[in-house]
């Protein structure tokens, strides 16, 4: 951990657009952030903010008509050498060995990520053999071990089950086992607990934290649930309509949020700790349709603090405001 200061992954000005008949959807439009080694980065935002497309861009699994049109995704290998993932062939050898081997992925809906005609074990064994090149027996042994580590009871028996035979929580555990079977350095978790109940969610979050401590891997946690972010993350990236509006440590984001959107979002959630039956603060209006992206700062039509004549014309850039926190808002242009 001596290279704490070099990140594991560095996303610079990433732009991923979807070219459709109805128009171009700028799903990600200039996102920049770093994932530090062994840390958990939370990416939060509401629907259409581009958080999932960002993850897919990193893995180079953006589906047509989507395309990365600009920016860099720098992956630092064990020696600290950067590779720009945007320059790799998405189906090439290098990218495939990164996916699954170096970067693990877990999705929101574990059912659809498992093949219904193969046992869970077979899918883990296949991943292990593909990336580690070990014998079948050894791969099976490792697969059972992986299932045991994620807390699946009786892994020797469960390894021959099909995904539909497992409960939601166990399925998500099996998904994590697949993602971790090759000991990745980065785990991308896209809404890993959204489909689960709270008590199961607590189990899975605990498991992720535990595994992270054991293995020292970094986690990129994509979620809309601010509670999960507060519990899990070291750093947080807040996105709105394809743009990063604020980056900072989890404490700074929750206690000294700068961007009006972050502040409004935090105020609008009913928390279990707040008094009941009072009026919640709301953000006026709703998230614009992606074809109708507002000009200037994408949040300006809903922003209570917008500066007339500025916010609707120019797009603010992400700039540091000290304390490791950055914000893209004209309110802070002069203070930086």
């Amino acid at each position: 951990m001596n290279d704490q200061r070099t990140p594991l992954l560095s996303v610079r000005d990433l732009k991923t657009y979807f070219f459709q008949d109805e128009g171009t959807v700028k799903a990600v439009d200039g996102a920049s952030f770093d994932v530090a080694r062994g840390q958990t980065l939370g990416i939060v935002g509401e629907s259409g903010c581009g958080k999932s497309v960002t993850a897919r861009s990193i893995l180079r699994i953006v589906e047509a008509p989507g395309r990365i049109v600009g920016g860099q995704i720098l992956w630092y290998d064990a020696k600290g050498q950067p590779t720009d993932l945007t320059q790799l062939d998405p189906d090439g050898h290098q990218m495939r060995s990164l996916r699954g081997r170096e970067i693990g992925l877990i999705f929101q809906e574990p059912m659809t990520s498992f093949s219904p005609v193969h046992t869970v074990g077979n899918q883990i064994i296949e991943a292990i053999r593909l990336h580690m090149g070990v014998s079948k027996a050894e791969a099976r042994r490792r697969a059972i071990e992986a299932l045991r580590q994620v807390g699946i009871p009786q892994p020797e028996r469960r390894i021959d089950d099909y995904a539909f035979q497992l409960s939601g929580g166990l399925r998500q555990r099996a998904m994590i086992a697949v993602a971790l079977s090759c000991d990745p350095r980065l785990l991308i978790a896209d809404e890993p607990t959204t489909a689960l109940d709270v008590t199961t969610q607590a189990q899975i979050l605990d498991l992720l934290r535990e595994l992270q401590q054991q293995r020292g891997m970094a986690i990129m946690l994509i979620t809309h649930n601010l509670g999960v972010v507060a519990e899990m993350c070291d750093d947080v990236v807040v996105m709105y309509l394809g743009r990063v509006v604020e980056v900072g440590s989890v404490d700074a984001i929750f206690h000294q949020a700068k961007h009006p959107y972050t502040r409004a979002l935090l105020r609008s959630i009913p928390a279990i700790t707040t008094p009941p039956r009072v009026k919640l603060h709301t953000i006026t209006g709703s998230i614009p349709h992606p074809y109708n992206r507002p000009s200037g700062c994408p949040f300006h039509p809903r922003c209570p603090e917008r500066l007339r004549g500025l916010c609707e014309v120019a797009e603010p850039a992400l700039r540091a405001v000290g304390n490791g926190q950055s914000v893209s808002c004209f309110l802070y242009e002069n203070r930086a």
């Binding site: 709301t282 006026t284 209006g285 709703s286 998230i287 614009p288 349709h289 109708n292 992206r293 507002p294 000009s295 300006h300 039509p301 917008r306 007339r308 004549g309 916010c311 609707e312």
Partner: peptide
């Protein structure tokens, strides 16, 4: 309002202000 030139067809909420 000068700022709401586009994208407001999807607006909702307090419609009197919008």
């Amino acid at each position: 309002t000068p700022s709401s030139s586009q994208g407001e067809g999807w607006g909702e909420g307090d419609f009197l202000d919008e």
